[in-house]
Amino acid sequence: MNETWRSWLSGAPWLLMIGCFFILPLVGLVLMSFSGEGGFPSLENYRVIFAEGSDRPVVLLRTIGTALTVVLLSIAIAVPAAYYLAKCVASARLQAAVLALVAVTFLVGPLIRTVAWRGILGRSGLVNTVLQAVGAIDEPIMSLLYGRPAVIVAMTYNAFPFMLFTVFLAMKMIDDHYLAAGRDLGAGPATVFWRIVLPLASPGIWTGAILVFVPTISTVLEPEILGGTSGRLAATEIRDQFFHALDWPMGSTLTVVLIVAGGIAILALALATAGLARLSGRVGIAMRAGAAR
């Protein structure tokens, strides 16, 4: 058995698997979204979604908006932390320990992680009890739980580890000599971060953003467990179609629309950041540094 045969052999099982059980299902979904009366392909389902009086577009926008908020929050939390761990902490043990800690809290699964917030944000939960004990408030804040804020807090909680790990990896791979060179040339620590580390790590931040955005637009748990009667989100709609209304074609159509909308959002964001970067000249640094590597 020669070299090429063995190469294909190693990749074949997985590629065949996703061919049958991933690509095919996705294609099936898309095809099903075009199903109409009597088995002929039609755009009926799509028309219903975007028809007058349909609240689906609003739901869609709300979903995307929420997901973008989660991405921004994840960046705010994970990027400084990743920088600290990758570049400011010398001990590999400490880096491993912190990452493992976050990983452990992550691997217990989104269900447990989401349910946990009920005891923190509830009327007699941790936040309210502490604030009352300290005297900051007299009455418990009712709207902490079962509302949009709770959903966003939980979504961020469930998704930011993806951002942390990818950005950490990206920053770890930045050669320390670049930073040393920057300091040597007179840049302060903040400048080094904004003009050297951030541009070089931006591909990692992008990957992290996608890994956060994609699950967030489709997650059912947080809106359901913590959302209460606040605005419906797309994933809940889709779940209902598949389970309660048993209208699979509609469910498929909603899924396709969600994916496409998500893709457009990502594209728009990419263009926006590219435009900004070109304006500020940071792309130049990133590209030159990338070429040098």
């Binding site: 997985w14 095919l24 299902p25 890994l211 699950p215 489709s218 997650t219 699979w248 899924t255």
Partner: peptide, 21 residues
């Protein structure tokens, strides 16, 4: 790259698609 596609497709979509298939 194709092999890593499942990472960027929402689990919901995967689950729905699998159910249909």
């Amino acid at each position: 790259g194709l092999g890593f596609l499942p990472l960027v497709v929402p689990v919901l979509v995967l689950a729905a698609g699998l159910q249909v298939t």
